[in-house]
Design a protein around this nucleic acid. Structure first.
Lengths: 245, 245
DNA sequence: CTCTTGTGGCTACGGTGTTCGCAAACGGAT
DNA sequence: ATCCGTTTGCGAACACCGTAGCCACAAGAG
């Protein structure tokens, strides 16, 4: 008769305490913040609605009062992290300003390893993403008054940053996923690489590995960035002749 | 004695027909091919082991005889699509060769919209990925004998390509996910954009949208690529002085 | 004909995102 | 002080996922 499977508040129905004393409201910001913390620390795979709810000490279904879906939450996370550092002050020196934008974007992408792969696949239209666009355009505007050209310059530079960090993250992510240290990773990949090289195909790749004088990630990024800025600047400076009346 | 819980083939045990007539073996290649088709057509989200098995008309669990896990399958897919077009013949003209590599990479990434976001997050160490690396290095070797410099040049160019296509895909992916046409998408985003611009922040972004003279994706890609190649070439040509004895 | 072996796949487990509908709490009007 | 409409939290359930264990069968060996 009495239902023993009901729960631990075993007897008197009317004596059950208020289920919860009206916890503090989750609110969109709190949810997004918690989700970002989880994703940063344990990767996107560990980010589940249940997990977020647990960290917030609220019920899972409650989250849906504030966020339409997991996908929605991801969009909010993306914009949130993009707004966590203020855009640099424009100095009027387009190259310095653009470099600052690029470095800031890189730092953001590295701080949140899930960001890059999630950004490939959804357009950044949130307020903070747009502010970043605007800041970059302001920098480029100092280089040329032609907004079309400036936009293309910005696109080119941001594309480079995006791709460079993506490749930079790839290796780190792989290590993180397997839980190995830098040392262990090298040791586990080494034999395979040696074997491939010994095969004789890929002679240039073999040379690269053998004479490996690879710089650290920072230097590599800066090298590429300088190249891109050089190229963009030269091309933009050359272009206006083609369109003046 | 008789086990009634055995199943619905209720009477004669020996009369049950062979459950399935021993379908043709899945084999790794067949599995990978099927998975790629699904991911291309319906996105990575639709790619489940059950779905692959259904398309192959085999049992789900059977796939695990050939593939260790879903993650493994993704790695195999990545390398498979990278090998589906042969690398271009090197001509000795580094710029032409590098352009060919870049265009080919872009084409591959566009043909398989899931590739870019999956590549951010795992290093490409498959045979076909390595061949691509090697081809690019061969092109760069025609520019400089310094393999370290060549490697950095390749990294820079590939980073740009990767990032540029990533941004290019973002919008398309968003549309695809919502199932809207180009037209509908523009209409659904338009009001929001107008609202943001009307807010007065983001003046440069507003200019860009207003004076929108944006070229098509192909032109944008080529513009950026030329910039990057210009910059890389100039910097590499200038560098060797710093390291000669 | 029997025995061994390899292989396909059913079943099940523990997780996921999401929905439904109820109960509790709140806020205003009476 | 009491009632009532609205908002809010959330337990339970659904459909689906990746994966492990085990069993039944086909094919080859003796």
């Amino acid at each position: 008769m009495t239902d023993p499977a009901k729960g631990p508040e075993h007897i008197l129905v009317w004596s059950k305490q208020r289920r919860t004393p009206r916890r503090q409201a989750p609110s969109v910001e709190r949810i997004v913040r918690a989700a970002v913390v989880i994703a940063d620390a344990e990767g996107l795979a560990a980010l589940s609605m249940r997990r977020v709810a647990a960290d917030l000490e609220s019920g899972t279904a409650s989250l849906y009062r504030y966020v339409e879906s997991r996908d929605d939450l991801l969009d909010l996370m993306i914009d949130a992290v993009q707004g966590e550092t203020a855009p640099p002050e424009p100095t009027g020196d387009w190259r310095a300003d653009m470099t600052a934008v690029a470095r800031r974007l890189r730092a953001t992408l590295l701080r949140h390893p899930w960001l890059a792969s999630e950004l490939t696949g959804r357009p950044a239209l949130g307020a903070n993403s747009l502010r970043q666009q605007d800041t970059a355009l302001t920098a480029a505007a100092a280089l040329t008054a032609d907004i079309t050209l400036a936009a293309q310059a910005v696109d080119t530079v941001l594309s480079y940053v995006f791709g460079a960090v993506g490749r930079e993250l790839a290796e780190e992510q792989a290590r993180r996923r397997t839980g190995l240290t830098e040392e262990q990773w090298r040791e586990s990949v080494g034999p395979y690489i040696r074997e491939v090289i010994a095969g004789g195909a890929y002679p240039q790749f073999a040379r690269r590995v053998a004479e490996a004088d690879d710089a650290g990630p920072d230097e590599r990024f800066e090298f590429g960035l300088e190249c891109v800025l050089d190229g963009v600047e030269a091309r933009v400076r050359r272009a206006p002749e083609n369109r003046g009346p």
